[in-house]
Amino acid sequence: MTESYTYLSPIGLMQFDSNGQQLTSIHFVDHEHNTDKFDLKLRETITRQLDDYFGGRLHHFNLPIQPQGTDFQKRVWKQLETIEYGQIISYQELALKLGDKNLVRAVGGANSKNPMAIVIPCHRVIGSNKKLVGYAGGLWRKKWLLRHELEFKEKRGELF
């Protein structure tokens, strides 16, 4: 049975779905959908970590996640987790990190199926032409997230 918790972020409502122990998906929604059975400790952890992320204080999430996908998708998502806060890479660079430049389209497809918005940072991947392309939450959110991370990285002096 899926349990859900909705969090109001600066860029819209985010829904967290759980199997009772681990998060199975995180996505943007238009309406609240909370279930009474959602684990209180997990809800507090999510809220604290997202508040800290949006406040510029958290750069790496530590949430119990269990994304569902193919073995290839999971490899891509693991690689996404290595992209540092405030950094961007292209789909081509991501394919090269996976060992084959010809995987660009497959990498893009796996990226688009990422079930863990923000926590697995697919928003940090851009087109080879340095343009923002593809984001399930909408390109305006991708742009917002990248600017947000860059702003806090600059405030801490990490660019110098």
Rank of each mutant, 00 (worst) to 15 (best):
P121L: 00
K113S: 10
Y91Q: 05
K97T: 14
L150V: 09
V119I: 07
G69F: 01
H123P: 09
K41E: 13
R43N: 01
Q87F: 13
I65M: 02
L146E: 11
P115I: 01
N129D: 12
C122Y: 12
Q49I: 07
R43I: 05
Q73N: 12
Q87T: 14
Y135W: 12
L80M: 07
H60F: 13
V133F: 11
D30V: 14
P115W: 00
V107Q: 04
Q73L: 06
N114R: 05
K78S: 11
K78D: 15
R75N: 10
G109D: 03
L80S: 03
G99V: 10
N114C: 02
T45A: 15
E32P: 15
G109S: 08
I26M: 06
V119S: 03
T35Y: 03
H27R: 11
Y53C: 05
G137P: 04
L58Q: 08
S112T: 02
W77I: 01
R141S: 00
V76C: 03
G55T: 09
L132H: 10
D30L: 13
G108C: 02
I120C: 07
W140C: 15
K142D: 08
L63V: 04
E81W: 14
G138E: 05
G69P: 00
L132V: 10
S90G: 11
N111S: 14
S128A: 13
E149Q: 04
L146Q: 12
W77L: 04
S25H: 07
G86W: 09
K130W: 12
S25M: 05
I118R: 02
L98A: 06
L132T: 13
L50G: 04
W140E: 15
D39N: 12
R43M: 02
S25I: 03
N102C: 12
V119L: 04
V125K: 01
G127T: 14
H60S: 14
P67W: 05
G55K: 07
L42G: 07
G138C: 01
I65A: 00
I89T: 14
H148C: 04
H123F: 11
M116Y: 02
L94W: 06
D71E: 15
Q68W: 10
V107D: 00
K130V: 14
S112L: 00
S112H: 08
K142G: 06
I83V: 10
V107P: 05
G99R: 07
K130E: 11
Q73P: 09
L50C: 10
Q87R: 13
K37D: 13
T47Y: 05
N114W: 07
R105G: 09
Q49K: 08
D100I: 00
P64H: 01
T24W: 01
N34Y: 00
S128F: 12
I88E: 12
Y135S: 08
T70V: 07
N102M: 08
K113Q: 10
W144N: 07
F72R: 00
I65F: 06
V29L: 07
K143I: 11
V125F: 04
G127E: 10
H31Y: 15
A117M: 09
D39W: 06
S90L: 13
N34H: 00
I126T: 08
V119A: 03
V76H: 02
E84V: 11
T47V: 08
D52Q: 12
S112I: 13
L80R: 01
Q73W: 06
Y91C: 04
R147E: 14
G138T: 00
P64V: 01
P64S: 00
T45R: 11
W140S: 12
L50K: 05
V119G: 01
S112D: 09
L146H: 09
